[in-house]
């Protein structure tokens, strides 16, 4: 289980060149997209669609990395790398962890915007 997400606003902003405007836009989009991303992961897993699951995990990995969530990115990377026919049945908990992580990060980011 990954450690609780801690918002490191300074490092994210540094990567965005200190641009508050872009940062705010990214946060809004992340928050707005969280449920879509959770659904994409769950649907791909339920359908046994290896490629879609791999791609959804890859997208989430990038999103979490954008907000400097290295632990969350590692979880998503695990699903991306292990998304194979013979492993799908075992990936349920890992996918659920990512979904929780996405919602957690979303909540922290939203709070940080308030």
């Amino acid at each position: 289980m990954a450690a609780a997400f801690v918002l490191d606003r300074a490092s994210i902003l540094e990567r965005l060149g200190g641009d508050e405007e872009i940062y705010a836009m990214m946060v809004d989009m992340f928050v707005a997209d969280v449920e879509n991303n959770c659904t994409a992961l769950a649907t791909a897993l339920a359908a046994g669609d290896v490629e879609s699951l791999k791609r959804a995990a890859h997208t989430v990995k990038g999103l979490l990395a954008t907000f400097s969530d290295d632990d969350g990115a590692v979880e998503a990377n695990f699903v991306e790398k292990n998304a194979r026919e013979d492993e799908l049945a075992n990936l349920g908990p890992a996918v659920a962890d990512i979904q929780s992580r996405l919602r957690e990060v979303s909540a922290v980011l939203s709070a940080g915007q308030a």
Binding site: M26, M29, D33, R55, T59, G62, L63, T66
Partner: peptide, 9 residues
């Protein structure tokens, strides 16, 4: 890019 957030960024 297929990701809206990446496109926007």
């Amino acid at each position: 890019d297929d990701s809206d957030i990446n496109l926007t960024l």
